[in-house]
Amino acid sequence: MGRLVARTQGRGFYPVGHWLDDWLAEQGARDGELTVFLRHTSASLTVQENADPDVQDDLLDALDRLAPEDAGWRHSMEGPDDMPAHVKTVLTGVSLQIPVVAGRLDLGTWQDVYVIEHRTEPHQRSMTLRYLGT
């Protein structure tokens, strides 16, 4: 088991795959599966394209259309972006299971693992890591 903290600078996609690969190397991982769990309710995890940043911008725009700030949310104690962030997290998820082959994440050529920050302010996002394998 391990822990990784990603510091965000507000709304956006933050690549963490390289940190996960570094952690796997420290563990002496070879072949198995990595579970990554994000310990927050207003940010999420995803595997997504890493080649064209327009994809990430389009996804952020799509999530904003699905959960806009001005939708009349009841929960607003932490600001107008908080409840929409919770909805976006429900839609995108906080846990990933990723195959590990030869000590590295078995991602496709154009893929990376991202923390998606749904809030406008910077945050520290904590992930719990668990590797099972050889």
Rank of each mutant, 00 (worst) to 15 (best):
L34S: 11
T41Y: 08
Q9I: 02
R74S: 06
E69N: 14
Q9H: 08
T8Q: 08
A29R: 01
D52R: 10
S95E: 15
W23D: 02
L91S: 04
L63Q: 05
G12N: 15
T41L: 02
Q48T: 02
D52W: 10
G93A: 05
R7Q: 08
A29I: 05
G93Y: 09
F13R: 04
L45G: 04
V47N: 10
G32L: 00
R65I: 10
T46D: 05
D52E: 12
W73Y: 14
I98P: 00
D57N: 12
V94F: 01
W73N: 02
D70K: 12
S76Y: 12
A85M: 09
S42H: 05
P99R: 13
A85H: 09
Q56S: 14
V36F: 08
D58F: 11
G28E: 08
L63H: 02
D82Y: 08
N50D: 04
A43F: 01
A67T: 08
V47T: 05
P15V: 09
D31N: 14
D54V: 10
L91D: 04
D54T: 09
A25R: 03
D21G: 05
Q48C: 07
A6P: 01
D54F: 07
R65A: 14
L91F: 05
H86Q: 07
R11V: 10
H75L: 07
D58S: 12
F37M: 06
Y14D: 11
E26I: 03
D81S: 12
R65D: 12
W19E: 13
R74W: 06
F37Y: 12
D31Q: 13
V101P: 01
T46V: 13
F13S: 06
R30F: 09
P84A: 11
T41A: 07
V16H: 07
M77K: 14
S44D: 07
R74F: 08
W19Y: 10
T35N: 08
T46G: 03
A85T: 02
Q27P: 03
L34F: 13
E49A: 15
L45C: 12
A25W: 09
V90R: 13
L34C: 08
A67R: 07
M83N: 01
T92L: 01
Q27T: 05
E69I: 14
D21N: 12
T41V: 05
L91N: 07
G17P: 01
F13Y: 13
H75K: 08
A29M: 05
D64I: 02
Y14A: 04
W73P: 02
T41F: 07
L34V: 04
L24K: 00
E33I: 11
V87W: 00
T89H: 10
V87F: 10
L91E: 06
E33Q: 15
S76G: 05
R65F: 12
A43P: 06
T89I: 09
S76V: 15
D58Y: 10
D21R: 15
L20P: 00
D81N: 05
E69V: 14
V47F: 02
H75E: 02
D21H: 07
P15Q: 03
V101C: 04
T41K: 08
D64F: 03
L45I: 05
